[in-house]
Design a protein around this nucleic acid. Structure first.
Length: 271
DNA sequence: CTGTAGACCTGGAGGC
DNA sequence: TGCCTCCAGGTCTACA
């Protein structure tokens, strides 16, 4: 489920574990998107959680001698539970800490997520080193995006969802940002004007900032680490609103498929 | 190099 | 109820 806002809400929620020492790790299922290192319980024991950062949709949990690179995939979730909490079928990993009775639990029904260990700089990891800029950073601006759209035949929605162009824009927020900037999702990237790109960049930044502020979008299964749902789904203007009236013009929202993903737009407001 | 389909998984919703 | 099909927030890999 998680796009960048949901990942960021998760990261912020994990901060109570900062500076605590791992007492043990339980891995019930090693087969995520990539298999979990079978040595991980041994490696992580007695290590201190020193920092929690994020790159794109990857949470980077820095420990004494390396970093856990965590991706939530489509259905992954991290939550803070007590040791008495009943076990769910898809609770694959528990991290326990010395200082309290709490467990950091990873649940992921579809197992598209990943938990990888690296001793080196995580930003040099092969999954991370080639990622595009963070959408909220200044380097992601109209000039940059416009330059990346030149000569691109690909439709604009798929381009802004490409993590090598910009990270963190998933299927929900791509549709939303295009709605706010008045651009149809199927438009060829190279046909988007500088003025429209300027509006699109602002829309991407706004929609992501607002979603983080509202605690993310709770679709079917996103909750923060304490089990609280987000509220941003109530702010969706087009996503999941096919055949409902456009907020601005009352025309019915259209749903199409682009790159095998559902896309939503208003035929009147988006050109 | 570019663009797209397929792959990886489970579960929920809706039709019959 | 049960079975079937389709759908779901991601993204890497293979192939044209």
């Amino acid at each position: 489920m998680p796009e960048l806002p949901e990942v960021e809400v998760t990261r912020l929620g994990l901060r109570p574990f900062l500076n605590l020492t791992v007492s043990g790790l339980v891995i019930r299922n090693y087969s995520l998107r990539w298999p979990i290192d079978s040595e991980l319980p041994k490696i992580l024991k007695n290590q201190i959680l020193l920092d929690l950062t994020r790159r794109g949709k990857y949470i980077l949990a820095k420990f004494t001698s390396g970093t856990l690179i965590i991706h939530l995939g489509m259905s992954g979730r991290l939550c803070i539970v007590s040791s008495e909490e009943t076990l769910n079928k898809h609770d694959h990993v528990d991290i326990k800490f010395k200082e309290n009775n709490l467990i950091l639990r990873y649940r992921d029904p579809r197992r598209f997520g990943s938990i990888l260990w690296t001793d080196n700089d995580p930003l040099k990891h092969k999954l991370i080193k080639n990622l595009g800029p963070e959408p909220l950073n200044d380097e992601f601006d109209a000039k940059y995006l416009f330059s990346r759209l030149r000569n691109k035949e690909q439709c604009i929605k798929n381009t802004i969802m490409d993590s090598h162009i910009v990270v963190g824009v998933g299927n929900i927020y791509a549709s939303e940002a295009l709605y706010y900037s008045g651009i149809r999702p199927q438009r060829r990237s190279k046909k988007v004007s500088m003025k429209e790109v300027d509006s699109l960049v602002k829309a991407i930044k706004n929609v992501i900032k607002e979603a983080i502020r509202k605690g993310g979008s709770t679709m079917s299964d996103f909750f923060d680490v304490n089990g609280k749902n987000g509220y941003f789904q109530n702010e969706h203007r087009v996503y999941g609103r096919e055949n409902n009236a456009c907020i601005k013009c009352q025309f019915l929202i259209t749903q199409i498929k682009l790159g095998q993903r559902s896309s939503f737009y208003c035929k009147k407001c988006q050109k």
